[in-house]
Amino acid sequence: MSAVLLSRLKITDLTAWTALETGRRLLGRDHTLDRLAREQLFLFEPEAGGNADVFEGVLGEAVRHSNFFVNPNKESYRFLASSERGAEWRPPEGAWGILTRSRDDTRDEGLLQRLLREHPLRGLGAIRKARVWWLWTRGPGGGPDVGRCYAMLGVLRDSRTGLLVNPHGESALLIEGAVRWEKVERFLIEPAPAFRDAA
């Protein structure tokens, strides 16, 4: 079981604003994009055979009391220790999400080395990074119409379709309702599947 850190800007997130504006243009008149938020996800994976509780204490201190991961002047965060994170990850009220990761190995070796240098801790095998986009949409029927909105705003296909994910660099996991953390872990740990635009 891994520990998880989710951080987001509490000062204006200009990227989220631009994504919101661009998304609204792409969706057209039948769909509404009410809100869009962006989070950074860090997954702290224990060494093989180990447990996250070995390092979570020191790691939690580094998160709370240094600016290594989070600067409290501009960011807010949720640090979910392995025992606290629960079985599932739930989107914010009314939202659905797109979790995106690089197609390369998601481990950030440089960040890990820097963390070990700045905040020595034991038992941490890897830090993996991913981005989460939360979207609040409404379709013609009043519901979120996730299928259509994901097609329009999610994976890029051509200059008219898709926005938040370029499939040649990233792969995506649609989060519609609660998702099991094991699934998130597998998505981040296993190699990204080969991609072929089927159209």
Binding site: I11, N67, P72, N73, K74
Partner: peptide, 10 residues
């Protein structure tokens, strides 16, 4: 540093 956040310019 917590106390300074209102001054952050973007």
């Amino acid at each position: 540093a917590e106390g300074q956040r209102g001054h952050v310019q973007v």
